[in-house]
Nucleic acid binder design. Structure first.
Lengths: 219, 219
DNA sequence: GCCTTTCTGTTGTAAAAACAACCGACTTTT
DNA sequence: AAAAGTCGGTTGTTTTTACAACAGAAAGGC
């Protein structure tokens, strides 16, 4: 577990907290470690959770498949990001989605009760973690709203423009890579792959964008 | 302000806290009160926030209009619910949406810094509020995911089924009212009103549902 | 290298949604 | 009470998307 302290230190949850403090908090917060191979399920729809998870290695997709096999990718989790926090309380009910490892991944899990119930003396930094937790979950909230903004667009083209603009803004350059292949992007935008591919090429022919594989340039 | 203490007591944020404690916390948390007439803007897109708001009277819509005048209703806020919590931190940037009073409304606002920075002695119940805040924002998070689930449906009919099923489940009966008129429901589901109206009638003719105005029955 | 699989773009067709326009029923305003 | 406005439903047309099927390119395995 020790090996992941430098990574944990980089996360939003432990921002502003030193290596030593993290080390001592790991036991205080009831941390446990798990590894997953590419393609494995980290969490399954219907499961119940009592832990907040931090991804310390790899990439995950939050997704769900409906009766007809249509897959929706709700979001992507990168190393250093937190997940599960919205489903870690008793009232929160069962998970609505699957979480799947896109690449070999590793996760550190914390008992949520131990985080939000401040231990009076032991950890001076506990209060900071609670604040960090609030900031992190706020941020996730904003990301969800952003995604709602994309999905509420009526046409495939508008969805693409929304998504690509956001990525450009996020990566601070009109040239950027996306973490999806075509099928995954289509699943993320909730559109048909071939229709999307078609639309992308039209946009390219119209001189709006350039792309090659998962690298895009906005013109 | 005192008059709203019974209402605040009912909210998720002050769950488990007595009238007297709330009263003393109002000043401790830097609470302020505001009233809005029907149609007024409570918050505007682009604004910056440093407060968490609790709606103590009325109804609000979170919405945004694009360049072409298409309105999207992101969500609805009912009396007793909290809002703004995801945009109340310095890093959170400007608001992405408008918040508009659907009916005459009243809001109590709290300085977010004073909530998440626990005051050591004054309020014994401060820790509870922090936990409540976490629970509440978690719940909002789940609602957003649920809405994503609806918008990720491909067809108008599927969106309607998702939405109506959820409402039935929420109100614990196959017969229920919805808080939208047709245009608002269409804006909420991000579809065309006439197409939606059409689809609703088809579903009625097929014997799936019955409805009259904003009252629906699932069969 | 060769075979297999995955990924991406392309095309034609069928289905669905958006759009626009209109009507009648109700409400609200004056 | 008349007028104006809102609301929900209907219809026909146009546009867009989904679907299915295929082909070439790239990647991966043996």
């Amino acid at each position: 577990m020790k090996q992941f302290i430098p990574i944990l230190k980089q996360t939003k949850l432990f921002s502003g907290i030193g290596n030593d403090e993290i080390s001592s908090m790991l036991s205080c917060l009831g941390a446990s470690f798990r590894a997953y191979k590419k393609g494995e399920f980290v969490l399954r729809q219907g499961e119940r959770l009592s832990e907040i998870m931090v991804l310390v290695k790899g990439n995950l997709h939050i997704q769900s498949d409906d009766y007809w096999g249509n897959r929706s990718i709700l979001g992507e989790i990168c190393a250093g990001e937190m997940f599960g926090e919205a489903y870690a309380t008793p009232e929160s009910g069962a998970l609505m989605n699957d979480v799947v490892a896109v690449t070999d991944s590793a996760v550190v899990a914390f008992d949520v009760k131990r985080i939000i119930t401040t231990c009076s003396s032991a950890c001076r930094f506990h209060t900071i973690v609670v604040q960090n937790l609030f900031f992190a979950i706020s941020e996730k909230n904003r990301k969800l709203v952003q995604k709602l903004g994309i999905l509420s667009k009526r046409s495939t083209r508008e969805k693409l423009i929304s998504y690509l603009s956001e990525q450009a803004k996020k990566q601070n350059s009109p040239s950027f890579s996306i973490p999806f292949n075509r099928q995954q992007l289509a699943d993320f935008l909730s559109v048909d792959r071939s229709a999307m591919s078609n639309e992308l090429c039209k946009m390219r022919d119209e001189g709006m964008i350039r792309f090659e594989k998962n690298r895009f340039v906005l013109l």
